[in-house]
């Protein structure tokens, strides 16, 4: 509880702190400047600048292979950065103190299949001094109470991925990075999880959630649109509808992407004309 109260207090003071240019402001949870990441000879991220606000849900959207996971890994601090900077909660990404405050749920569930749900959550909780109550609460938060003593390997795919989420929730992170958390979940569970995320954001937690299901973008207060390692736009779902000329976010997104692609084609053909 004190944890949540602390967030609320910080959240309440943002008006007095004002704009973000001076000191590391509390309103900005993540600040990415000129981020380049190259793996081997492949450029994965090619100059990303963006900010993620504290206490909000930010969606990270883009086709597969656009660099979503790499950007998230850079924010968590497990990705080697080629150029540029990533600041998280006012500190460089990967700072040891951030390990207490940032939770990360990978796309493929990273838990121990041979352990029970409870043992998994207890193990990751042990890194943060979680109590038995914290463990029960994290398991309840993902709706796996009746499976707590079952081996994770015996669960269905959707349940298995929720074990991974519970292992992140148990630390009550200030910043939660979720890579495609709703893949393979039925619509009811998906809606429940988004309610849960909204509740966490209201309590002051910052969430960065990647997804390729566009209808989910509507739950976010801000969207980062990624394509081929570049940030196409940072906008709200309403702005996306407007720019993509559709209330259906999926169609709007496709429209924006096609616009970008045809823009590139024109630029390329323009270049070709100039050359002899």
């Amino acid at each position: 509880m004190t944890h949540i109260a602390k967030h609320k207090a910080e959240f309440g003071t943002q008006a007095e702190i004002g704009t973000q240019d001076a000191e590391p402001s509390l309103t900005v949870a993540i600040e990415v400047v000129g981020l380049h990441i190259t793996r081997g000879r492949t450029a994965i991220l090619r100059g990303i600048d963006c900010t993620v606000n504290q206490g909000k849900i930010t969606g990270l959207l883009g086709p597969s292979g656009s660099g979503k996971t790499t950007l998230m890994r850079a924010i968590v601090g497990v990705q080697r950065i080629t150029r540029g900077s990533v600041k998280v909660l006012g500190r460089p990404a990967g700072s040891p103190s951030l390990r207490h405050e940032v939770g990360y749920v990978t796309q493929d569930p990273s838990v121990y299949p041979d352990l029970s749900v409870e043992s998994n959550v207890r193990y990751f909780g042990a890194m943060y001094g979680a109590t038995a109550a914290d463990i029960t609460e994290a398991i309840a938060a993902v709706g796996l109470e009746q499976f707590a003593r079952q081996k994770a390997a015996d669960l269905s795919g959707g349940q298995f991925s929720r074990v991974s989420l519970a292992c992140a929730l148990v630390s009550r992170p200030r910043l939660l990075i979720l890579d495609e958390p709703t893949v393979g979940l039925d619509p009811v569970l998906r809606a429940e999880l988004w309610d849960r995320f909204a509740g966490m954001a209201d309590a002051g937690t910052t969430l960065l959630i990647s997804s390729h299901v566009m209808e989910e973008a509507g739950h976010c207060s801000s969207l980062l649109l990624l394509r081929e390692g570049r940030l196409m736009a940072q906008l709200s779902p309403a702005e996306l509808s407007r720019r993509g000329r559709s209330d259906d976010l999926e169609r709007a997104f496709l429209h924006v992407i096609r616009e970008a692609e045809s823009g590139e084609r024109e630029a390329e053909s323009g270049e070709r004309e100039v050359r002899p």
Partner: peptide, 13 residues
């Protein structure tokens, strides 16, 4: 290979 090591490396352990 399962990603649990990378996950552990993001915790205070």
């Amino acid at each position: 290979t399962s990603g649990t090591l990378e996950r552990l490396m993001t915790t205070p352990i």
